[in-house]
Amino acid sequence: MRRRAFVLCVPLLGLAWATGCTEPRDHAQAVYLLVDTSGTYAEEIGKAQLIVNYLLGSLQPGDSLAVARVRSRSFSEKDIIAKATFDNRPSQANAQKRVMKDRVEAFTSSARGSVNTDITGGLIQGAQFLNETGAGKKTILIFSDMQEELDRATVRDFPIDLKDIRVVAVNVVKLKTDNIDPRRYMGRLEVWQKRVQAAGAREWRVINDIEHLDALLKS
């Protein structure tokens, strides 16, 4: 009798382990792309479209993607241009990707430059979005020159929480002043690295070649 019960219990335990011990969202990936539209960087927005297209081609059903702009104050849902958690069915996911591509295309063709650049606000907004998705891998891509400029009323000098999130600065172009003194560029990236790591981020990286994104998303 005991033996029979054991034989019955083994597959049930296996099933319980298989269904209960693995969270489906653990394998999902969520990406939040911040697109800087301020000042001269607005000229780079065409490349942002390429990155979005690349992400749409790489992300799998069940993954999440959001594209948001960085403006003078970016801690707002209104700054999210398009977002989606792709359906588990590949056909539906493809349809969602087409819609998202159209939305981002519409945005890039009509984007207007902002006066200031609130990258921190965008990061906080992105972290909220990513944590809500419950995905196993969370990534914030910052498409910006990483030069933050805030107006006097905007308060961003407080610790932020980016726990378990990878932060990747993409296409960090050099400013005119960086060309005069490259230490400014290095220093700017170093400050951001410290800030992001202090916020508990899993990783900080700078990728200027879009092709290197592939390895990042697969890792």
């Binding site: 269904t19 693995t22 394998h27 059903p61 993954d63 069915r89 590949p90």
Partner: peptide
């Protein structure tokens, strides 16, 4: 395997 993902979902995992 691929079309089955259309039926039972592509993002669901049974084990790691």
């Amino acid at each position: 395997a691929l079309p089955m993902s259309e039926m039972v979902g592509a993002g669901d995992y049974l084990t790691a």
